[in-house]
Design a protein around this nucleic acid. Structure first.
Lengths: 75, 75
DNA sequence: ACACCGTGTCCAATATATTTTACATCACGT
DNA sequence: ACGTGATGTAAAATATATTGGACACGGTGT
């Protein structure tokens, strides 16, 4: 689960949606602000459930926000 | 992340793919068999990363296997 | 200058996902 | 009948996600 692209996407969606703040998004999907920060900055990969919720807030598919990066060079 | 529909879907995909066994699928996505069992039976919801991997094995989108919105009904 | 606000980060604690091992059952072939 | 493979389940242990609190920093407004 890679970071910078996801960060850009979530940020853009947030600002495309009435300048939604990290705190707002966190409240909308029922997690804390730090979780949003961590996900945007790819500290870890969210649960599928949270990913679904975030996608639902922006009314897009999961693939529009997150992407699967098959291990940054392990072959 | 409700279970029975997901179970049916994963099972169907497994059997649609050359009778792939739980063990096989587990090996393909790099988890143990119990994890596959637990996900099929909705003991818990997988990480986004694992969901991506499973979808990739079957070459479908995450939405084709998992779902967030409460399942209307079972059959 | 000060007081917010949005963001990033660190840390300890809790919750959840995943592993490991083991055992039970059911269906199938021999 | 026996053995084997596929599946379900359960416990304890480990890994990871998430929380809650705190602190820092840049920007903006007063």
């Amino acid at each position: 689960m890679k970071g910078s692209a996801v960060k850009k996407r979530i940020r853009r969606f947030r600002f495309d949606n009435a300048e939604m703040t990290q705190k707002d998004l966190a409240g909308r999907v029922g997690v804390t602000r730090q979780t949003i920060v961590a996900i945007e900055n790819a500290k870890y990969s969210p649960t599928l459930e949270l990913a679904f919720k975030i996608a639902a807030v922006f009314e897009v598919g999961i693939d529009d926000i997150f992407e699967y990066a098959p291990e940054p060079n392990e072959n």
